[in-house]
């Protein structure tokens, strides 16, 4: 059984348009003009239990709108969706007992109180039995290493500490689906790493289905097994991370450390990124030059001290996807209107 099933989901907003200037404002009073904005355009996908799926797209692509429809906060303009067999916008309250969401730029912790007070309140909100709640809290405090902050007012916590508490708060009632909306935004490298590791561990240990939106390629690369890419409201890619990289960027970076000085020689399919006597950095177009041939040619030409082959950074892949037309084979119909919100 699929945990999340979305079929032809669509959300359109009517937006008032106004000409610039005072004249435009006065005209808009008497003859308002509206245009339709298509935030989510007939997207379809399904997610199985325990899957960790990245949901990426540029600003205004329709990610947050989709998440809001999946939590039941927004009613769609068309299509259908089922989360844990509930229709979210019709059975929102029943669904909320079994899902959780974390928004990186919002907080559900009470700002002036310590996280422990917010946890206690959430235990009442989700009607948890006290022994079960205490055991669950003890486990989360241990996993998220938040014992030192439990009794410190939230306003005094760093962003990274707060975010760990936010995710712990979202997991108190053992949700089966976790929706994470940019959970690492604004965090430093160490805090990002901690959050990613925790989400991964959680998904593995408790078989929680995770749908993660982020603008940070590292989040997607280190946490997700599968990626959904949305742009202008339309789903343009739905497959594994590896396939995303392989299918979209057809080059690799070869970094050579030389034992003896050598000179770089231009060849078809090879681009020299940097060159000095003991180090070469080359970009290989794998469509023109298979990697085996490139490696054997390099080994024959130079005395190599060290050689590394790098995958293209996911950032580049994502930037290329956003900039380009839909990926052949994955293309959905593009939305005729610019999307209104993220």
């Amino acid at each position: 059984m699929q945990t999340i099933e979305v079929e032809g989901l669509e959300k359109r907003f009517r937006v008032r348009r106004k000409q610039p200037g005072l004249g435009g404002s006065v005209r808009a009073l008497f003859a308002p003009r509206y245009s339709e904005v298509c935030a989510v355009d007939r997207i379809s996908f399904s997610i199985a239990r325990g899957d960790v799926v990245g949901f990426i797209g540029p600003n205004g692509a329709g990610k947050s709108t989709t998440l809001k429809m999946l939590t039941g906060i927004l009613h769609p303009s068309g299509g259908s969706a089922r989360v844990l067999d509930f229709v979210p916008w019709r059975e929102r309250k029943r669904l909320t007992y079994r899902i959780a969401s974390v928004f990186g730029q919002r907080s559900q912790l009470w700002y002036h109180l310590p996280p422990a007070d917010s946890f206690n309140l959430l235990a009442h909100v989700y009607e948890l039995e006290q022994p079960a709640y205490r055991a669950r809290l003890a486990r989360l405090v241990e996993v998220f290493a938040i014992a030192p902050y439990l009794h410190v007012p939230v306003r005094r916590l760093s962003l990274g500490e707060r975010m760990r508490c936010e995710i712990a708060a979202a997991l108190l009632h053992r949700p089966e689906v976790l929706l994470l909306d940019e959970p690492t935004i604004g965090l430093d490298v160490v805090a990002k790493g901690q959050i990613r590791a925790l989400v991964r561990q959680l998904a593995d240990d408790e078989q929680v289905t995770v749908l993660l939106t982020s603008h940070d390629a590292g989040d997607i690369e280190q946490v997700c097994r599968r990626v959904l890419v949305i742009n202008h409201g339309a789903l343009i890619f739905d497959d594994t991370l590896e396939r995303l990289k392989r299918g979209y960027l057809r080059h690799k970076i070869v970094d050579l450390k030389l034992a003896e000085p050598g000179e770089a020689a231009p060849e078809p399919g090879l681009r020299i990124l940097s060159a000095d006597p003991y180090r070469l950095r080359l970009e290989v177009d794998t469509d023109q030059q298979p990697m085996e041939r490139v490696i054997s040619a390099l080994v024959g030409r130079y005395r190599i001290a060290d050689l590394t082959v790098e995958e293209p950074p996911l950032d580049e892949v994502i930037a290329a996807i956003y900039a380009a037309a839909p990926i052949p084979g994955f293309a959905g119909e593009t939305c005729p209107f610019p999307a209104g919100e993220g």
């Binding site: 809001k68 939590t71 039941g72 906060i73 929102r92 309250k93 029943r94 909320t96 007992y97 899902i99 969401s101 928004f103 730029q105 919002r106 907080s107 559900q108 909100v125 989700y126 009607e127």
Partner: peptide
């Protein structure tokens, strides 16, 4: 305005 509604509405109360 702030979008905090996404939290308050997504609770079982």
């Amino acid at each position: 305005k702030s979008g905090e509604l996404a939290y308050t509405l997504a609770k079982p109360y």
